[in-house]
């Protein structure tokens, strides 16, 4: 079997001197959708942040290989250019920065880093409009400041919009379904499914089975107390929905 797109081995990480990730092992192959579920505070967002390269997390052991490279050795923007995307659990509001300008700057920064030519404003706008249309988002979102004053659901949709525009190879969605109404959930799920082309990998962090009805995962992993406590197929998600995490809570 060929090397998975993402391989995490014995990853340990601390925040403020406290160990949060206590030896994570996880492999996600190109084309795979891996769901991560787990109780609040178990380390799911910490794992996403470490993968995206956020400051403030001290990796004390283990390694993460992405597409044959040492992911932990790369700057956040290098990871982005290499195709890693994280949809934030809490997208940041950036007043004063226009969504369209930002998304185009990001896209062109990535293209430049990959040695590709920049996309011009007209082509960008065309693609952005199509993408917004698919996500049933109003074009006004392009002109508004990044996430500023967006409702919770709008922020999540904006993350999916950016993902669709940036076309990452590995997308980590941190509770993108939380706070979405039923229609929005369906639309977001459709946006996610549109990424499934057999080459990209998706890590979907969620608390709810509902998203996984739309985005059917290839594997489901339970993250509890900083470790992958159990892995299985989609049946595991259904089981968790019934039984909760009691079996995984530290005594």
């Amino acid at each position: 079997m060929s090397e998975p797109l993402l391989r995490i081995r014995n990853l340990r990480a601390s925040v403020d001197g406290q160990e949060v990730l206590k030896g994570i092992d996880l492999a996600v192959a190109a084309g795979e959708v891996a769901a991560i579920m787990g109780p609040n505070g178990s380390g799911k967002s910490t794992l996403s942040n470490v993968l995206a390269g956020r400051d403030g997390y001290e990796v004390t052991d283990g390694e993460v290989r992405y597409d044959g490279r040492d992911l932990l050795d790369m700057e956040p923007e290098e990871r982005a250019a290499a195709g890693v995307f994280m949809a934030f659990q809490y997208p940041v509001e950036i007043p004063g920065v226009v969504n369209a300008t930002f998304t185009r700057t990001a896209l062109n920064a990535q293209r430049q880093a990959r040695g590709e030519s920049p996309i011009d404003a007209i082509d960008f706008l065309k693609r952005a409009r199509e993408t917004l249309g698919r996500l049933e988002m109003d074009e006004a979102f392009l002109r508004r400041d990044v996430n500023a004053g967006f409702s919770g659901g709008e922020k999540k949709r904006n993350e999916i919009f950016q993902m669709a525009m940036l076309e990452p190879r590995l997308a980590i969605l941190d509770e993108t379904d939380s706070g979405l109404d039923i229609d929005a959930l369906r639309i977001v799920a459709m946006g996610v499914n549109a990424m499934r082309d057999g080459r990209r990998a998706l890590v979907v962090i969620t608390h709810y089975q509902r998203l996984l009805e739309y985005v059917v995962p290839d594997s489901v992993h339970v993250l509890a107390d900083g470790r992958i406590a159990r892995s299985g197929d989609r049946e595991l998600a259904l089981e968790l929905e019934r039984a909760g995490y009691a079996a995984f809570q530290p005594a």
Binding site: A52, G53, R54, D55, E75, P76, E77, R79, A80, A81, F85, M86, F88, P91, V92, I94, F102, T103, T105, A106, L107, A109, Q110, A113, Q162, L166
Partner: peptide, 8 residues
């Protein structure tokens, strides 16, 4: 970090 995570 948000901006950098998008490639800036």
């Amino acid at each position: 970090f948000y901006l950098r995570s998008r490639g800036l």
